[in-house]
Simulated assay, not measured.
Amino acid sequence: MGDVTTPLPLNLQRGTYAPSGPNDKRTPCPVINSLANHGYINRTGRNIHASQLQAAINEVGLSRALGALLTNSIFNEQQDSKAVSMQKKPSLLARIWAIIRNPWIVMARFGMRRRDQVDSQGRKVLDLDQFAIPGIVEHDVSLSRCDHQQKEGNLVLQQDLVEDLLASSTDGKVLTVEDLAAFRKRRIQRQLDDNPGLKYGPQEHKTGCSELGLILGVFGNGKSIPCEYARALFKEERLPVKEGWRKHWLWTFGFLELFRSTKQVQTAIGIRL
């Protein structure tokens, strides 16, 4: 007899971990996937509301302001760059009025939502696999995925990359800023060799550095993260609660922390694009 997949219980409590199933939708981001696997986001990965995503992001310790910026930006309607370039530029008053009506429109280029993508009550929704749309938030040279141009695509977790990431630890106990910087430099070189269509410029590099900074700040002490935490996040896409991680209660990870941690990673990598 072949393997039988046991369906998940329908009454899984919010916060309880269960790995995603074959029909569930997920992102290229291990942290967002972990939130879905714990039920802080719809476990199916479908029809996610902005309020649900923002609450889930706050669950790991991001500030409400940073969570609001990230969430409301991606819930903008996805822009067709070719169509936008052909449109007549609106007047200054029209642009001011548009910003008054929707302040997040200034971040419109990060929009992932399809036109008229709403639920039965007219509320904006998106599916988690829309995070994989190239050139919005997703970028080449992921820590745990191939590039979208490659055969494997950018949604499939590559266990060999995760093992290489964990093996980057100098002492086998923690991954420091320097360890992670060295790993990203190796990933950049590997993708330059393996992907002729690689797109990795200053914006993609800054985004990649900010992702590392966020992981170090939210799940570590800002300068390192325990290997067992990183293994849970990247290999199982699980919040490392069993390993001892807890959300910071005395402070949240906001804009200032993100700026500082991003600069720290950029400095450690030391390359200019």
Rank of each mutant, 00 (worst) to 15 (best):
E59K: 11
V60F: 10
S63T: 15
A65Y: 03
L66E: 01
G67A: 13
G67I: 06
A68L: 15
A68P: 02
A68Y: 13
L70C: 02
S73I: 10
S73M: 10
F75N: 00
Q78W: 02
D80G: 03
D80Q: 04
D80S: 07
S81M: 09
S81Y: 02
S81R: 11
A83K: 10
V84N: 04
S85K: 11
M86L: 15
M86C: 14
K88G: 13
P90F: 11
P90K: 08
I96G: 00
I99W: 04
I99Q: 01
R101E: 00
P103Y: 01
I105T: 01
V106A: 05
R109G: 04
F110T: 09
F110Q: 13
M112A: 08
M112L: 15
M112E: 01
R113L: 05
R113T: 09
D116P: 00
Q117E: 15
R123G: 09
L126T: 10
D127E: 05
D129L: 04
Q130H: 03
Q130K: 11
A132F: 00
I133C: 10
L143Y: 08
L143M: 07
S144T: 11
C146Q: 13
H148L: 01
Q150Y: 05
Q150L: 11
E152D: 09
N154F: 05
L155Q: 08
L155N: 07
V156G: 05
L157H: 04
Q158P: 02
Q158Y: 01
Q159D: 12
L165S: 12
L166R: 03
L166G: 11
A167T: 04
D171C: 07
G172N: 04
K173G: 05
L175T: 01
L180D: 00
L180I: 09
F183G: 03
I188G: 15
R190L: 07
R190Q: 09
L192D: 08
L192N: 12
D193I: 04
N195Q: 14
